[in-house]
Write a protein that binds this DNA or RNA. Structure first.
Length: 685
RNA sequence: UGGUCCAUGGUGUAACUGGCAACACGUCUGAUUUUGGUUCAGAAGAGUCCAGGUUCGAGCCCUGGUGGACCAACCA
């Protein structure tokens, strides 16, 4: 890893500034704080890589902290899975912490707040409290419990803790500001009653602290210098700071919270709730279904830790909502696997190929390169015989010159073996090809050193010897959703976009026998097909392979209608830019062209002018007039407007004083082009 | 409607205290190739949401718009 100091992301910039301002480098400390209520996904990977990456960069400790303050949702299973995923990604945490470790401290601080009159027990219903909180535009009103005495509050809180009250009956609230524009400051809840066993503290507690009360204080306890979280917590910062203010010892480090945008991936969903829904509805087989964007799903799919870390690096960190295209993720895994995956041959959709001039019963053991990218990777043996399987797609009786594969009368090479020529086919009654007969150039065996062995033929096919092949199941995956951003549609549920064909199971694929030795972590490239890995569903008599990702396929692009219609550009309306790209209005288009008008010359200039003339047909005066006021220095725009104005006048637009003065200013401008256009327009009348 | 944040090629990010917009993916050529993979060489594609302003000079600063995200859970 070459550490580039050239450009820092904004978080690194903040840290650099803090260091500059006097923060000692050995005070730096970070944390990754998941709630153990689900599995980690690729979005978390961004946060993990950010925090642990910072730790590596500054040689600072990074804690793993389970934010386990809600026993209703959290489970040990998730704790274990999260730890496994982080380790798998290759990161080591300094300390394994739990918010629940701080329950007593948090409780003591709460008592302190009550004593200082900054917190009170509220016995209103949730609805009543919401009501009383007001709305963003109207301020809240004090509830009946707000001015209870300290003594009474102490007593009530004690009884809450003792389990005297039912769930939902009483809460502890901070007394802050009921008219704050930030709703979170309108007396937020610190504690609620939850009568549920906690995965770590069991039944020790029946009151549990809320996120806001817990998070900042936990950061403080652990002396985290930079508490990084996603954008939706931005509003919480004010409260985070308020809580810290109440308990902080000024001689100790004060954590700061900073927010970055969460990472979204196209064609999938990323919230735990939605992933859970996919699992519970059995749309997928589980959290680690290879189609899931979870770390465990990606792992099972065949992704490597390196590829995911690299993906995080390439994606970057910023404060804007965005959707990263899956193609970047796919690039990352291909790049990694290309260098490391062992090359093998497998036929997924077999058709029988008989080499008629090859002796029956003869078997040759050929040698195949393990990885052409790695000269030290060696070779492995692959048996060859008279009867082979090749991919059905790799043969056509006749085809155009762009088809580099086997046809009748054409030669191709069988990878690592012989050059063959298609001779004839045998079909069944329905007309399906059942056998392809061919002849081999028996001098052309790969690596034999003969002249024929180095002959160039256009195509190379993968194959497998029928009598030696092992049968296996292969699972191919497509994107889980048909829409680029399935959860960005207000009117539709994300489940409506589930791709019904995201899983394709091939029950009988044929693999070269070398694959018998495959183990769970091995990565293979099935040559010409893609990268595959053994699935944990494999048994001793049935291997199961997952397709991680296909090879880049520039041939598929040439085919007429290769994929169904799932690559329709389903442009969504929410992201980024102001105007939807496809449907710029004519006037906007003109402005765009005109902007660089003065930089153009010759043909380009003429073309630009013609474009403007054409676009102007669709512009009405109301759209154009505001542009008369365009700044004098923006000559291009004014020229464009002038040209468009000419068109409008031609179409019968009445001249008025606005138009007159616009033309007059144009005539007097120092830019010749503008003067020219102004003259043309002026002379039209 | 109140508040906060954001806005740079198709996508994701850069551009240090203002100096004629860079990188990666994707796309398209061509070469090499016993994987239509890889590798190599090259190309197209934005004038930085809009409009004013400050400045010799603005993606960076100011003003006003527009668009989007987030906030009113006893979730985190």
């Amino acid at each position: 890893m070459t550490e580039e100091s050239a450009s820092l992301n904004f978080i690194e910039q903040i840290i650099a500034d803090d260091l500059e301002a006097g923060l000692s480098k050995d005070k730096l400390r970070f944390r990754f704080p998941p709630e153990p209520n689900g599995y980690l996904h690729i979005g978390h990977a961004a946060s993990i890589c950010l925090n642990f990456g910072l730790g590596e960069k500054y040689n600072a400790p990074v804690n793993l902290r389970f934010d386990d303050t809600n026993p209703a949702k959290e489970e040990q299973e998730y704790v274990d899975a999260i730890k496994k995923d982080i380790q798998w990604l290759g990161f080591k945490w300094a300390e394994e912490c739990y918010s629940s470790d701080y329950f007593q401290q948090l409780y003591d601080w709460a008592i302190q707040l009550i004593k200082e009159g900054k917190a009170y027990v509220d016995g209103q219903s949730a609805d009543a409290m919401a009501e009383q909180k007001g709305t963003p535009t109207t301020s809240g009103v004090p509830g009946p419990f707000r001015d209870t005495t300290v003594q009474e509050n102490l007593d009530l809180f004690e009884r809450m803790k003792a389990g005297e009250f039912e769930q939902g009956s009483y809460v502890l609230r901070a007394k802050i500001d009921l008219s704050s524009p930030n709703m979170l400051m309108r007396d937020p809840i610190l504690y609620r009653v939850v009568k549920k066993s906690h995965h770590r503290t069991g039944n020790d507690w029946c009151i549990y602290p809320m996120y806001d009360w817990t998070h900042g204080e936990s950061d403080y306890i652990e002396q985290i210098s930079h508490s990084l979280c996603t954008l939706e917590f931005k509003m919480h910062r004010e409260l985070y700071d308020w809580f810290l203010d109440q308990i902080i010892d000024p001689t100790k480090l004060r954590p700061i919270q900073r927010e970055f945008a969460r990472r979204n991936l196209s064609y999938t969903v990323m919230s735990k709730r939605k992933l859970l829904e996919l699992v519970q509805s059995k749309t997928v087989s589980g959290w680690d279904d290879p189609r899931m964007p979870t770390i465990s799903g990606l792992r099972r799919r065949g992704y490597t830790p390196e590829s995911i870390r690299n993906f995080s690096d390439l994606s970057g960190i910023s404060k804007r909502d965005s959707v990263t295209d899956v193609s970047l993720l796919e690039y990352c895994i291909r790049e990694d696997l290309n260098k490391t995956a062992t090359r093998v041959m497998a036929v997924l959709d077999p058709v029988k190929l008989i080499i008629t001039n090859y002796p029956e019963g003869k078997i040759e053991i050929l040698s195949a390169e393990n990885n052409p990218e790695d000269p030290n990777s060696g070779t492995h043996e692959v048996p060859f015989s008279r009867e082979l399987f090749i991919e059905r797609e790799d043969f056509k009786e006749e085809a155009g010159s762009k088809f580099f594969r086997l046809t009748l009368g054409n030669e191709v090479r069988l990878k690592s073996a012989y050059i063959i020529k298609g001779e004839s086919v045998i079909k069944d009654d329905a007309g399906n090809i059942t056998e392809i007969h061919c002849t081999a150039d028996l001098d052309s065996r790969s690596g034999s050193g003969t002249e024929a062995s180095t002959r160039k033929v256009k195509g190379t096919l993968h194959w497998v010897s029928i009598q030696h092949a092992i049968k296996a199941e292969v699972r191919e995956y497509d994107r889980l959703f048909l829409d680029e951003a399935p959860d960005s549609h207000e009117d539709k549920n994300f489940m409506d976009f589930v791709n019904p064909d995201s899983l394709k199971v091939i029950k009988e694929a044929y693999l070269e026998p070398f694959l018998q030795l495959a183990t769970l972590d091995d990565k293979f490239q099935f040559q010409r097909l893609g990268y595959f890995t053994l699935d944990r569903d494999s048994t001793s008599d049935q291997m199961v392979f997952n397709k991680t990702v296909g090879l880049r396929d520039s041939w598929a692009k040439q085919k007429p209608a290769p994929t169904p219609q799932n690559n329709q550009p389903a442009k969504q309306q929410n992201q980024g830019g102001a105007q939807p790209q496809g449907q710029r209005s004519a006037i906007n288009e003109i402005q765009k062209i005109a902007k660089k008008y003065t930089n153009l010359s010759g043909d380009k200039l003429a073309a630009a002018r013609a474009d403007i003339l054409k676009l102007a047909e669709d512009v009405n005066y109301e759209e154009l007039e505001p542009l008369f006021g365009t700044a004098a220095k923006k000559v291009g725009t004014r020229i464009g407007v002038m040209i468009a104005l000419g068109v409008l006048l031609n179409k019968g637009q009445e001249r008025n004083s606005e138009i007159d003065s616009f033309i007059k200013i144009g005539l007097e401008d120092e830019n010749e082009q503008l003067v020219e256009e102004a003259k043309k327009v002026d002379n039209k009348l």
